[in-house]
């Protein structure tokens, strides 16, 4: 497992670059992860990130775009505005969750 130093902390990443430990994530780290992919986090991003992390804690899997819409109330269009082009993967990355495995 590669280890990266982000914001002065060593964090473990999987082969795709996603954080592997739910507990290693924090908000400072999230800002840097978002900056890595060119995203400046707004209040709405934070609401979505907090929902994603709570949902992961509940279900044990990273949310798909569809689930984020149906269960979280964030429309697919809004997800695309907040995390352009590849919303599910970017959301999981910034929220410190594994790469989503769901098909839709």
């Amino acid at each position: 497992m590669p280890v990266a130093i982000i914001c002065g902390h060593a964090v473990e990443l999987d082969k795709d670059g996603f954080l592997t430990d739910y507990e290693e994530w924090n908000e400072i780290l999230a800002k840097q992860l978002a900056a890595n992919i060119g995203i400046d986090l707004t209040d709405r991003h934070w609401e979505l990130i907090r929902w994603l992390r709570a949902d992961y804690r509940r279900l044990g899997v990273s949310s798909t775009t569809r689930h984020t819409q149906s269960a979280g109330g964030f429309s697919i269009k809004e997800q695309l505005e907040l995390f352009p082009k590849t919303p599910a993967k970017k959301m999981a990355y910034v929220a410190g969750l594994p790469k989503p495995q769901g098909c839709v």
Partner: peptide
């Protein structure tokens, strides 16, 4: 946060 801190492995979101 400094640029040196940034993670070297950034997922490839496009494939």
């Amino acid at each position: 946060m400094t640029p040196q801190d940034s993670v070297p492995i950034i997922p490839s979101f496009g494939g």
